[in-house]
Amino acid sequence: MILHTINKSPYSSAIFNDCLRLCSDGDAILFIEDGVYATQQGTDSYQLIEQHPEVNFFALAPDLEARGLTSDQAKVLTVDDNGFVELAVKYQKVQSWY
């Protein structure tokens, strides 16, 4: 299982789509930096999140907070920096998309 990190806004980059295409069941995607803009409800990218229950979605809390965003905590769990490290340990491989 692979932990993918995404650091670009879905409004300016196709990497969220590219990444989802390569995801296997049980992989995780962690949104960091501008990637966290993908987690907002009522958007196309949030629909994509809803359409992929086989993937575990996370967002980095400090990056959400800094940008004045919150997460629904249902489809996208927030993690702090320690949680990021825990995820990196839990999944066998990390793949950074940028």
């Binding site: 692979i2 390569l22 296997s24 491989k93 990390v94 793949q95």
Partner: peptide, 8 residues
């Protein structure tokens, strides 16, 4: 390929 390698 992604699943079978050691590092990506």
């Amino acid at each position: 390929l992604c699943n079978n390698c050691d590092t990506i």
